[in-house]
Simulated assay, not measured.
Amino acid sequence: MTKSYQSWNKIPSCKPSQVHIDDWRFENLPASGKLPMTPFGNGRSYGDVCLNKDGALLESAQLNRMMEFNRQEGRLIVEAGVQLGEILELLIPAGWFLPVIPGTRFVTIGGAIANDIHGKNHQLKGSFGAHVERFELLRSSGERLICSRQQHPDLFSATIGGLGLTGMIIWAEINLMPVNSNRMEFEEIPFHSLTEFQNINQQSSDWEYTVAWIDCLSQGGGRGIYSRGRHANDGELQKAQANGCRLR
C-alpha cells in the first residue's frame, strides 16, 4: 500500500492496514477481524480523529450523490461523501444556505456530523448537528438504521459528534436557511482593549457571523481585530453547477 492518509495538519501521516472503498449504499461493512474500523471523509479534521493507524479505514468518496432537494421547505438529503462546497454550489442559486459552515468548504457531510462542526455563527445557530433531521447509519452488525430524534434517538445523539464510532453514515437530511443574495456584508473593526472588544461584541447581535483575533502579548493585552459578516438582503443569486455530484 503506497497511499498515506493524513489529517489537515498533516501530522502524523497514517498507513492503515486495510482501506475499503466500496459502494456502501449496498455493501455491508467489511469483516476486518480484530482491526478497529473508522470512516474517512476528506481528511480535514485538525487532529488525528480521521486516522486509524494499523486499523481499517472506510472511505466515503463513493457516496457522492445529492439525493433530494426540497426547494420550497429548505431541506436537502445528501450522501455522506459530498463536500460542503459542492452543496453550496447547488443551494445558493436556489436561495438557500447551510446553517453552519466551518473555515473550509472541503469537509464532507459525514465528517461535519461526526465532528459536529461549528461556524462563526455558533452563538446563533449552534453546531451542525442542530440542523440534522435524520440519517441512515450502517452498523458493523449489518444493520441499517434510520436515526432521528424520534427513531433510535440514543444512536442519533451518539453519532452527532461521535467521530464515526457508532457506524458509517450513508446519507443525511439537513435543514437549510434561506438567503436573498450570494453577497455578504462584511466589516473589520480594530479595538485596543478587552472593554472595547466587549462593547463591539454587544453591538453586533444582528450580525450572523462574528470572530475576533486578539493579540494577548500586546501592551495592555487587548488589541485586536473584530470581524463580522451577514448575508446581504438583496443581490443576485448566481447560477452554478455542483461539480462531481448529481441530484438523483
Results as ranks from 00 to 15, higher is better:
residue 53 K to I: 07
residue 201 N to T: 09
residue 88 L to T: 10
residue 38 T to D: 04
residue 204 S to E: 04
residue 99 P to H: 07
residue 34 K to P: 03
residue 157 S to Y: 02
residue 178 P to C: 07
residue 180 N to L: 12
residue 87 I to R: 01
residue 189 I to L: 03
residue 33 G to I: 11
residue 107 V to I: 15
residue 210 T to Q: 15
residue 143 E to Q: 14
residue 186 F to L: 09
residue 25 R to M: 01
residue 82 V to E: 01
residue 110 G to W: 00
residue 7 S to G: 15
residue 244 G to S: 11
residue 137 L to D: 07
residue 42 N to W: 06
residue 95 G to T: 06
residue 225 I to C: 06
residue 61 A to N: 06
residue 110 G to K: 01
residue 11 I to S: 12
residue 133 E to I: 14
residue 123 Q to G: 12
residue 233 N to L: 14
residue 48 D to F: 02
residue 214 I to H: 10
residue 35 L to K: 13
residue 205 S to W: 10
residue 174 I to P: 08
residue 161 G to V: 06
residue 17 S to G: 10
residue 8 W to F: 12
residue 4 S to K: 11
residue 150 Q to D: 14
residue 12 P to Q: 12
residue 211 V to L: 09
residue 89 E to T: 14
residue 98 L to V: 01
residue 154 D to Y: 02
residue 63 L to G: 03
residue 29 L to W: 06
residue 116 D to Q: 05
residue 121 N to A: 07
residue 15 K to P: 01
residue 141 S to V: 08
residue 68 E to K: 08
residue 115 N to Y: 09
residue 164 G to R: 02
residue 65 R to H: 12
residue 182 N to V: 06
residue 60 S to Y: 08
residue 41 G to A: 04
residue 116 D to S: 07
residue 129 G to C: 07
residue 130 A to R: 15
residue 230 R to L: 01
residue 67 M to G: 02
residue 127 S to D: 09
residue 75 R to M: 05
residue 177 M to Q: 13
residue 154 D to H: 05
residue 142 G to L: 03
residue 141 S to I: 09
residue 194 L to V: 03
residue 235 G to A: 09
residue 165 L to V: 10
residue 5 Y to E: 07
residue 136 E to H: 09
residue 241 Q to P: 03
residue 197 F to P: 01
residue 152 H to N: 15
residue 174 I to R: 02
residue 175 N to D: 05
residue 193 S to A: 07
residue 189 I to V: 11
residue 37 M to T: 05
residue 175 N to E: 08
residue 51 L to F: 00
residue 106 F to S: 02
residue 101 I to A: 04
residue 165 L to C: 12
residue 227 S to I: 05
residue 110 G to D: 01
residue 15 K to R: 12
residue 115 N to C: 14
residue 27 E to I: 02
residue 225 I to H: 03
residue 144 R to M: 10
residue 138 L to Y: 00
residue 26 F to P: 00
residue 223 R to V: 08
residue 12 P to V: 14
residue 11 I to T: 13
residue 163 L to S: 10
residue 124 L to R: 15
residue 122 H to G: 08
residue 38 T to F: 00
residue 135 F to L: 11
residue 25 R to A: 00
